[in-house]
Design a protein around this nucleic acid. Structure first.
Lengths: 240, 240
DNA sequence: TGTATTTTCATTGTCGACATAAAATATCTC
DNA sequence: GAGATATTTTATGTCGACAATGAAAATACA
């Protein structure tokens, strides 16, 4: 199921300073969950994690609580903690919220962006171009996420940004699942849309920003949906 | 600063079962934070909490991590954990997000509500009426929150519901702060608007639901804003 | 042989103690 | 006496160990 070979034996990896343990575990696990290195629904062994990071179970557990708070793992009391399953039943709601956040954050960015933020987003756009040229799909997924996250942050509404980033991250797992059905055309369409979106933000044209954000969202939703229906095999594979 | 005398000595309160500790601490603290029983910005002493609940520090800390995940407390590494300050600077963003969530959840409720959910929401509306009649302000604040949360849940989009409940809870602290400026008129206006809102949801009239939700949001935002400007004294009181 | 009951076993949730970090206090130098 | 440095103090972050829990294995029973 996993797209990459699991990182099996990541030993103590050097002494960590006090208070760094939970953060490191949290970040590492988050990464592995979103990359599908850890299979959705698979159980997480606290003891193994403790050995792997060379720390005791206490900070591991605190990291688990944090991960549970972000919905990345699910804790079954007195039993296990499992990697959050991908909930296909809630996909329509996911798409709905994702679309709305695309629109709202892009609109706000058009209003509130500073020149510095604009430049930083352009940089990310260039990185995306490079990833497309290199046909580096994992990099494309990652940079795409950072691109939209940066736009949201330029909008400067913490509530929208938090939800949007959560949705984008959840979306990364879907994109990973279906990345096999990527063709060469699609990334270029995204690239163009990003270009138009950034132009609207630069020009502070709110309505244009809204329109392109909505179109972009629909594009992505359609893409994932068609990939899903084209590849039903995967659905039966995923533990729900 | 606190509106009620702090619950000082809540002793072990009976043996708890395994795994109930964190939940109880979390819920109790959450309540006390939202009721302003715990002053925003005030430090939280893990040891005292452990004594108060009659458990060790480990489950207390896990509860703190959960609270931090919901933004109810802020952890200063190696120093304290403090009750999340009320961030007056971000208030405009808060109002913006709150308004949008009012609209979106009410719209969705008009589409997706079942008869059972509708009946349950009507019950909450009746409870609200009773609270208004009894001039029981804390009950009004609590029931109002549950009323809108129930509407959101009837809309059946977890992403919106989660964000909205978080915003409503954060709003409870603001309402508590300014509840002194409540007059007798305002609750009745809210009551009427709730009535219209429910009627729109019952009739599944999406556009009407949207309109009244927007109006209701503006009403509340205006109310809080005018209370704030009328009572600046409080701002200097709050440790930021 | 199939079902109900007991026992074992693995893993969690919790505890008390210790080490460590940062602030508060005391001490020293000029 | 003022600033810099050393020391004490207080509360955190972490640890290893233990007990409770629920599932699986083993046993008893019809």
């Amino acid at each position: 199921m996993s797209l990459e070979e699991p990182v099996s034996t990541q030993l103590p990896e050097g002494k960590r300073k006090r208070g760094q343990g939970v953060g490191a575990v949290f970040e590492t696990l988050k990464h592995e969950i979103l990359n599908l290195t850890l299979e959705p629904g698979s159980p997480i062994d606290e003891v193994k994690l403790a050995e792997r990071f060379g720390i005791s179970r206490t900070p591991i557990r605190e990291a688990m609580v944090k991960l549970a708070g972000e919905g990345l793992v699910v804790t079954l009391p007195n039993r296990f903690t499992i990697v959050a399953p991908i909930d296909f039943a809630n996909l329509p709601q996911f798409f709905d919220a994702l679309s709305l956040m695309y629109r709202v954050t892009t609109r706000l960015a058009a209003v509130n962006r500073t020149e510095e933020e604009l430049a930083a987003i352009w940089d990310l756009q260039h990185s995306y171009t490079q990833a497309v040229d290199a046909k580096d799909v994992p990099a494309m997924i990652e940079v795409n996420r950072n691109f939209h996250a940066a736009i949201a942050q330029a909008g400067k509404n913490r509530y929208y940004t938090d939800l949007f980033i959560r949705l984008l991250d959840e979306g990364r797992r879907l994109l990973r699942l279906y990345y096999s059905s990527y063709n060469d055309e699609l990334p270029k369409i995204y690239l163009q849309e990003h270009e138009v979106m950034l132009a609207a933000i630069e020009a502070q044209d709110i309505e244009a920003a809204d329109r392109i954000a909505q179109a972009h969202a629909e594009q992505i939703v359609l893409q994932i949906q068609s990939a899903m229906t084209a590849d039903r095999r995967l659905n039966s594979d995923i533990s729900l």
